[in-house]
Write a protein that binds this DNA or RNA. Structure first.
Lengths: 211, 211
DNA sequence: AAACTTAAGTAACAGGTGTATCTTTATGAG
DNA sequence: CTCATAAAGATACACCTGTTACTTAAGTTT
């Protein structure tokens, strides 16, 4: 029934399509690229495309994923005990990765249809944040009653937002600065903007979850 | 050349299309709705659609915008001097608005193509955050050297992320709780997760902006 | 109320999309 | 090496998209 992803022909075909797509993305906007364009560039039949991908978006997701394995791989090699430092290193790699693939990511982020990329980033960070925060929750004497999912989503989205700003404004600051700012905003929050004691907010208590 | 937006016929036609679209969205997925479907439902000609909207997405943006005017209107009527409380009230209205239009927004958020909505939300919050933060920056004795744009994007994205989580998880908590959590995470950040003094991070100094 | 302006409707077209059927050919298991 | 298997290629189809040229009719203006 379904296609054997280990078949040499499949691997070749998919790589072919990905590479053709990337080549086209360097030439024209995402929306302006038709499936026909992609298969022509990849020198294959249109039907073949549909055998592997539901639509153009799925091909993009595949491209982004392949690229991401690299980033995830790098992040997994960070060797620090310090959670704070770990988070900083991860963010730094994140920004450096975007910088390294500047041309590609600029294109990816610039056209609307490609918010796919954002979604992938979000998932990655949400996963990462979840782990970090989970640890903290265990050793945490405060036991802040906020569901971890919310925290993960909140932090991940915040970091992605900052990164998008950076990209859309042509990277006015170096990755080191961005990682530091992003981390600082996430951890210290706006608290300092308001003065520390003046606006102290007690952690909200968790309400009954209705069935 | 361009179409007179005040012409009664135009107003009628556009409202017609919006309403037809919303009706269809309650029946099937965004992707599954064709322009043909919309104009059939609206009892108008396909060409008419294209006279007013570039594509399906632009119609959606219009729908979202119309809905948003309401929210923005409500937010503008908050009458508190206290910045913290103002922000809480705004977030509360935000969550209540989503809750009020639950069915619609669930559909809007559920399908990928409709991340348009997120984009609109993001803009709204970025604008709001900017204003609030701008004020704070003026009276702030700390003078934290982080560009306001970054701060706005960071906070806005964080809040949107939290809201999406809430929607995607079928609103397990009441709006009051969500507004409080969202605000607490934004302002107090994860600082408390790590213990306050232990991980104190000095605000990053601003680097030279390269020409 | 009549005349003018301009939006809506009709019809047609060149592309693109996604799917089904059948043939050819590359791959990998024995 | 050979053969069964399954992926790639060729062709055709119904439907959708975005656009143009032209006609009809609703609305605005005087």
């Amino acid at each position: 029934m379904s296609i054997n992803q280990n078949d040499l022909r499949v691997i070749k075909t998919k790589r072919n399509l990905r590479e053709a797509f990337i080549r086209l993305l360097l030439q024209k906007r995402y929306d302006a690229i038709s499936i026909q364009d992609i298969v022509t560039e990849a020198q294959t039949a249109r039907v073949t495309f549909y055998r592997h991908y539901k639509d153009k978006e799925q091909l993009l997701v595949d491209c982004v994923n392949v690229n991401f394995k690299e980033l995830v791989e790098r992040m997994s090699q960070i060797t620090t005990e310090d959670v704070f430092n770990h988070r900083y290193q991860a963010l730094l790699l994140f920004y450096k990765h975007i910088q390294e693939k500047e041309t590609l990511y600029k294109i990816l982020f610039s056209s609307w249809g490609t918010r796919v990329v954002i979604e992938q980033f979000r998932k990655l960070f949400a996963e990462m944040s979840k782990e970090n925060i989970a640890e903290q929750f265990h050793v945490d004497k405060w036991r802040v009653p906020i569901p971890m999912d919310i925290v993960a989503y909140h932090f991940a989205s915040a970091q992605i937002g900052t990164a998008i700003w950076w990209l859309e404004n042509n990277q006015p600051y170096p990755p080191e600065y961005m990682a530091k700012v992003s981390l600082w905003l996430t951890l210290a929050g706006g608290l300092r903007l308001f003065g520390e004691d003046e606006f102290y907010i007690p952690p909200p208590s968790i309400p009954e979850k209705p069935e």
